[in-house]
Amino acid sequence: MKHRFLSKRYWNSITTPMAEVVDLAYKYDDLINLSLGDPDYITDKSIIDEAFLDAHKGHTRYADSLGDPELRYEIANFYQKTYNHELSDREIMSVVGACHGMYLVLEAILDDGDEVIVPEPYFTPYYNQIQLVRGKPVILETYEKDHFQIDVEKLKSLITNRTKAIVVNTPNNPTGACLDQEHLQAIAKVAIEHDLIVIADEVYGGFSFQREFVPMATIEGMKERTITLGSFSKDYAMTGWRIGYVLAPSYMIDCIRDINEGICFCAPSISQRAAIYAIRMRESILKPMAEEYKKRVEYAYKRINEIPKISVLPPQGTFYLFVNIKETGLSSVEMSKKMLEEAHVLVIPGSAFGKSGEGYIRIACTVGVDRLKEAFDRIEKINL
């Protein structure tokens, strides 16, 4: 990528396996795409209809830089009713998806060289985003034998004078693991004792299959030191609308609003109107979708564990399965390539999610059981 017109910071940049799959998705006409976490659902028709009625009524101008007041009210109402968690409208900001929110948060909290502890395997953009704002990612490996739960003693061992924050992503992308109450409370205790911020990525909060989802900010003593990233992308099948939110103390929200003035000022008005209707209809929209994803991952779990040399843990949350391929003797990239070329099934190599993701592939169950059956029928025929 070296070019005299590009910043030298990016001369050695390498395209990630996550980015490469976008082009690979067009390689075969009969390809079954189990790679990116883009739901096969179309946004509920009633959301689309109501949003575009609002557009005709004039919601096509810039929104409030903190977000549509009506949307912020609905978000606060949801957290109060669902989790008994009180939020003021000054503790909520609409953003252009959770990735945008994460960048704003990191820009607001990190000085050059500040450290952020990131459990691995991790959602691919975390690492680059921390570096983008001149921070330092510090990797905390998690392991399949521990069901990808965070080892709190290892977490404590990584804390230095420069540690500023811990990223907590539950339900987790890519592993599907859900942190239990005991682990959340232990992490909270560490954050309080060491005066750290927790950045809680809770994008998949609607897809926790084995236990009720508990937001990190609701743990005692954590509201003032938790920054929550939320999104409408997965819970409401609204990936293309690019709408999410940040929950944080008001001084933090004021800071990220000021930063965002030099980036995009506000989230799209029409998307925020859609989000208002989505959150109002949450039960009727999310519940059947979550049940369908649970059916899919349970089917995929069964099929995977019937195939020699690959295995996966029982699904806990999200629509992802992090499949162990170590017994094949292939690297995660080699296995992904083999599945693409021999079965025309596209997945993401585990190495895209950090060093400890090697030996795994991530499967996104974003197609129906009939297509999953076809995918695994093909995979079974591969010579492993």
Rank of each mutant, 00 (worst) to 15 (best):
Y28M: 09
I42K: 13
H56E: 13
A76D: 06
A76M: 11
R61I: 11
H59P: 01
I42F: 09
E50N: 13
L71G: 06
Y73T: 08
G37W: 04
D30F: 10
D40I: 08
A76P: 03
I42H: 06
A51H: 01
T82R: 14
E50Y: 09
Y28K: 07
D49F: 01
A76W: 08
Q80R: 15
I47R: 01
A25L: 08
Y28E: 05
I32H: 11
D49E: 08
Y26R: 13
Y83R: 07
D54I: 00
D49M: 02
Y83D: 05
F78Y: 15
E74I: 03
E50T: 06
Y26I: 04
L24A: 14
R72E: 03
R61V: 12
P69D: 09
K45F: 11
I42W: 05
G58V: 02
D64T: 03
G37I: 05
L34F: 06
S65D: 12
F52Q: 04
P39K: 10
A63R: 05
K27N: 09
D38F: 13
K81R: 15
T43M: 07
P39W: 08
K81F: 08
Y28G: 09
A25G: 07
Y83A: 07
F52H: 08
D29V: 10
K81D: 15
T43S: 09
R61Q: 13
E50V: 01
P39D: 12
G58L: 06
K81Y: 09
K57N: 06
F78D: 04
T60Y: 11
S46Y: 12
